[in-house]
């Protein structure tokens, strides 16, 4: 599987994503600069965490209008698997690939901790390899992770199994404890937690054992094969 990681000027989890992808897919991802207008031919795209263009406006608002994201929107529409973690999730909602918005955390503070999550839908291209495991721990590290959508959207997300991850002990006020969702076709995932920082048993600071994120990337690997 050839993957790509999008690099904005203030992306800061681009290396984390690249490390995880290389470790699990066995191939270095292509690092794609934000000014590119066309994605190279790849099987999977990660929009990493960070602050894209500083995020002095709404998080992800400017990045969503960058040349590369316009091409991602187009190709995602044709079925290209795309995952956005943290700032990547914010960008995907701003770009309209996913519904809803990420607002300031309820406590009005940045929050970084190992976070327990429930896998609500284990039958997506991002969760299949969890094979029935329903509880995982990934690190979270964000200020704007408070998921909001109107009632109709929330109902729709619930009904169609598009809520992929929920928080156990909600850290930021997200409606319905939503931590991650996918689009209708199931090929675009956005989530605030960082599975890419949970791929190494030595990195205990990320949670218990720190390897719960591996199966997410394996799921994609198996799906695109």
């Amino acid at each position: 599987m050839q993957s790509a990681v999008i690099v904005f000027p203030a992306s800061n989890c681009d290396r984390d994503a690249a490390t995880a992808l290389e470790k699990i897919t066995g191939r270095k991802p292509l690092m794609v600069w934000h000014e590119e207008t066309t994605l190279p031919k790849v099987d999977f795209v990660v929009i990493p965490g960070g602050f894209s263009y500083g995020d002095y406006l709404r998080s992800g608002a400017i990045a969503a209008r960058s040349p590369i994201v316009r091409d991602i929107v187009k190709k995602a529409g044709n079925g290209l698997p795309v995952a956005g973690f943290c700032n990547g999730f914010q960008i995907l909602t701003e770009a309209g690939l996913l519904p809803g918005a990420l607002m300031r955390n309820k406590g009005l503070r940045f929050v970084c901790r190992p976070q327990k999550l429930q896998i609500v839908n284990g039958d997506t291209m991002f969760t299949k390899a969890y094979k029935g495991i329903t509880e995982v721990t990934y690190p979270i590290a964000h200020f704007d992770g408070n998921y909001y959508a109107d009632n109709d959207t929330l109902r729709e997300l619930r009904k169609t199994g598009r809520i992929v991850f929920k928080y156990i002990d909600n850290p930021n006020g997200s409606l319905n404890d939503i931590a991650g969702i996918c689009n209708e076709a199931g090929n675009v995932l956005g989530m605030m937690p960082h599975p890419e920082r949970a791929v190494d048993p030595l990195i205990c600071d990320s949670g218990r054992g720190g390897t719960d994120g591996i199966a997410l990337f394996k799921s994609v690997l198996e799906a695109v094969r």
Binding site: A20, V111, C112, R113, A141, E196, D200, I203, D205
Partner: peptide, 19 residues
């Protein structure tokens, strides 16, 4: 205090204030 600091970015934090 330390939950307001990103401690796990860069993917190499083996142990921090967390423990």
């Amino acid at each position: 205090i330390w939950e307001q600091y990103d401690r796990s970015v860069m993917g190499d934090t083996v142990d921090s204030s967390n423990s």
